[in-house]
């Protein structure tokens, strides 16, 4: 640094803030009043006037039958989602493949499983044993047009749980395929070209370059799917799978406390979706690495920034 005359600061003092009379906005006050009044009257109804027996809700919230059902819902959701995602990735890659047979097969899969109601699909899987000749209902599993290797009994193989699992995961696979495809095509062509020019194989490029970047696009709608899946497990009640709705209805059928037990179910569904939110937040953070210029703020930092006036919270 050479000797230079001292620079005069450009803004030596901060000028006073403008003080002005704000515009009156009576509409805001009126709207807020209406909403608060409605909410208050609803809460008053629920707590004081209605016949809702909250003690019954408390009594059944941790009933062992309900807790068992919650565990089954977690199992069913996690397994169906896992299989759905695997099917989704495979079908999405098939749809993007240059092979016309694979391409049409994946299109037909998506067409069938997305185009028919989930409830009907679950019922279909539950009743599939009727398609295999009575009385034994054996399914031949082996080489197509060739020898069968095992012959399980369809009634035994397709239990209520398996029927629900097949219905949910095959349906999910169709939706996930479209989500994964959207993610894959969102990654610029140049990424694959750069990887190819380094000598990477197609599989390596997909696994190391394309899918990790596609995850940013795939995750938010997958979070949606996961939450839908949690709630859609209630459809398995129609085939007598003892999940939350089925079990609470079962209890209510005996003691007639129907609204209370529906509330019990809702509380558990909300608890499970809340957990899903947290999981989604951390996954998005992991796969967002490298994509924001400023290192991403943690949830805690955001709330603190909000408390300080929120200037930096939503940059």
């Amino acid at each position: 640094m050479t000797d230079q005359p001292e620079l005069t600061p450009l803004a030596p003092e901060r000028p006073d803030d403008i003080v002005a009379v704000p515009v009156r906005r009576p509409g805001r006050w009126i709207a807020a009043f209406i909403v608060v009044a409605c909410a208050a009257s609803f809460i008053r109804f629920v707590i004081a006037d209605s016949a809702m027996k909250w003690n019954v809700v408390g009594q059944y919230l941790f009933d062992p039958r309900v807790l068992d059902a919650v565990v089954r819902v977690i199992y069913l959701t996690a397994l169906s989602m896992l299989i759905g995602v695997i099917i989704g990735v495979i079908v999405a890659v098939m749809r993007l493949s240059p092979n016309p047979i694979l391409k049409s097969a994946s299109w037909i899969y998506i067409y069938l499983f997305r185009g028919t109601p989930l409830l009907v699909q679950i019922a279909f899987w539950y009743n599939i044993s009727a398609l295999f000749p009575a009385p034994q209902h054996l399914i031949d599993i082996g080489i197509p047009f060739g020898p069968a290797l095992i012959h399980p009994n369809a009634n035994v193989l397709i239990s209520v749980f398996v029927a629900a699992l097949l219905g949910l995961s095959f349906n999910e696979g169709a939706y996930m395929a479209e989500i994964v495809r959207a993610g894959i095509i969102s990654v610029p062509e140049g990424q694959s070209e750069a990887a190819a020019s380094l000598g990477m194989s197609r599989l390596q490029i997909m696994r190391r370059i394309v899918l990790p970047q596609a995850m940013r696009v795939i995750l938010p709608p997958t979070g949606n799917e996961f939450i839908s899946m949690l709630k859609n497990t209630s459809l398995a009640s129609t085939i007598a799978f003892a999940e939350i709705y089925f079990v609470t209805e079962d209890i209510a059928a005996v003691n007639f406390d129907v609204p209370q037990l529906l509330i019990v179910g809702c509380i558990w569904y909300l608890a499970l979706t809340s957990v899903a939110y947290v999981g989604q937040y951390f996954l998005e953070r992991k796969f967002g690495e490298g994509f924001s210029r400023a290192q991403q703020a943690t949830m805690k930092e955001r709330w603190l920034a909000l408390g300080r006036g929120g200037g930096g919270a939503f940059r």
């Binding site: 140049g190 020019s197 990790p212």
Partner: peptide
Amino acid sequence: HEREVSRKRQEIGMVFQQFNLFPHMT
């Protein structure tokens, strides 16, 4: 075969106009 093409590309470096760095890696 694609494998052979990949093997030959290993010996040829390429630099692109748009850099094409992998943004999810340091």
